[in-house]
Nucleic acid binder design. Structure first.
Length: 402
RNA sequence: GGAGGGAUGCCCGAGCUGGCCAAUGGGAGCAGACUGUAAAUCUGCCGGCGAAUGCCUACGGGGGUUCGAAUCCUCCUCCCUCCA
């Protein structure tokens, strides 16, 4: 591959690269480049949103470049007052250690983890000292900091911004100095930080890193970015059935977006799929099943993908019972004449978090016992081993009397 | 340091001339209908316990006034804006 082709292969689908020319020049050097990726030590569970930049990292890796994961243990131990209300919890060293291990394990599904360099930023930040920190801070201005959209918005909306938050981009930029990054990759939300990285590297007399960002993946709700806290994510370590089901629940309109970012078809392929759906050539559900199946196959295996699809079709298209249901054990002594109060049953089996919620579900017709809808919240129902309780669409439990 | 404004349920946000406030409205969420477990739409629910007319907990925290307080007083904590 010529350097130009490499460039296209590596960042052809990136949303922004600062700059392509610079990256081309580095590629022409012919040496392995150092590719930086910052990992959040507070959220070890990776989801498809993380997989987007990671898949791109894999491309770099496959071309002989060095991926450097930076575990932000220094910042994680201090705690981050970012955002409005919730202060991020401080993490203990053990937490960080454990999270890093989980992270590595999950990242290993996408990358050759043994070929990666994993670094903790406390390694250099602990030694920086107040003097070093102040020297670092001296190299950037408040005005430039306030250019960041997030800060600007918060200033306007009178939401507090702590000084530490100004320090974060600087510290992250310093990471680039410490690991001598050639390229930093991440989501578009990181662009500002990456650019600060460039400035700071220059200030320390280094060639600035190339900043490459990719569009953020939207979550299964189809609007917000995928994130754990919003609950709209698909974890890459989730069981095949869950993964498949969650992917089937995304709105049709985001299908091309998912295809483009998560599969090998690329933007062109995604556009083609979009056209086929519009013309009626391809049923959106079919496209979605294919997507779900591709992704399950990647994180599990093709066989698991096939089974997940069959199960999905059986349960949701044909209305059959799932082949595998969690068991709910009831002690015979809790029964009166073989009967139990329906509200208690629903709450106990995890279908509702309180009796009140269970009542609501029952009243609204969301509860079935052996396919028989139960709407009387005062009912005492007869239960036998093997009975199936269904709460809502997707919550099933097989009753075992012991 | 000075002046002013604010803290309400998962989030945003009314209420704040005391009882009709478990607290208007929106979002999120959940259930039902319709479907392709999609989206959109419509309906309902949306603190807990209870068969219930009921009870308990709740409007930043403590104390107080009152028959009765999210609403009044007081102290504290935190936040914001402006001036320095």
């Amino acid at each position: 591959m010529t350097p130009e082709q490499q460039l296209e292969h590596l960042v052809g689908d990136a949303s922004e690269v600062h700059s392509r020319e610079e990256l081309l020049d580095r590629l022409k050097l012919g040496r392995p480049l150092r590719i930086k990726y910052g990992a959040d030590p507070s959220a070890p569970d990776l989801h498809l949103g993380h997989s987007v930049p990671m898949m791109r990292l894999r491309r770099f890796q496959d071309m002989g470049h060095k991926v450097i994961f930076i575990i932000g243990d220094f910042t994680g131990r201090i705690g981050d007052p970012s955002g409005r209300s919730k202060t991020r919890p401080m993490l203990s060293s053990e937490d960080i250690e454990r999270n890093a291990a989980t992270f590595a394990e999950q990242a290993g599904k996408i990358l050759d983890i043994d070929a990666c360099e994993i670094r903790y930023n406390s390694e250099w930040l602990d030694n920086l000292g107040s003097r070093g920190l102040i020297e670092l801070a001296a190299r950037y201005t408040v005005a430039r900091m306030l250019e960041r959209d997030d800060f600007a918005t918060r200033m306007r909306s009178e939401t507090p911004i702590s000084i530490v938050e100004f320090l974060y981009p600087l510290v992250q930029a310093y990471d680039s100095v410490a690991v001598e990054a050639d390229v930093e990759v991440g989501g578009t939300d990181q662009l500002f930080n990456f650019l600060v990285g460039r400035d700071i590297m220059r200030a320390y007399g280094m060639a600035p890193q190339v900043a490459a960002t990719w569009t953020l993946l939207v979550g299964t709700d189809g609007t917000e970015k995928m994130s754990k806290s919003l609950g709209n994510y698909v974890g890459i370590a989730e069981p095949p059935g869950e993964m498949f089901g969650k992917l089937m629940s995304i709105p049709d309109v985001v299908l091309p977006h998912y295809y483009a970012l998560l599969t090998d078809v690329g933007f062109d392929g995604a556009e083609q799929i979009e056209r086929q759906m519009q013309s009626g050539e391809l049923h959106p559900m079919e496209a979605k099943k294919r997507l779900a199946s591709t992704i399950v196959a990647r994180y599990h295996d093709p066989d698991a993908a096939r089974r997940a699809q069959e199960e999905f079709e059986a349960v949701f298209s044909k209305g059959e019972l799932p082949s595998d249901m969690p068991e709910h054990r009831i002690r015979r002594s809790d029964l009166e004449d073989g009967r139990i109060w329906i509200v208690k049953l629903v709450a106990d089996c995890g279908g509702a978090s309180s009796n009140s919620e269970a009542r609501r579900l029952i009243r609204q017709g969301g509860v079935r016992l052996n396919d028989q809808r139960i709407q009387d919240e005062t009912a005492n129902v007869e239960v036998n081993g093997g009975d199936v309780l269904q709460v809502g669409r997707r919550h099933f439990a097989k009753i075992v009397v012991e």
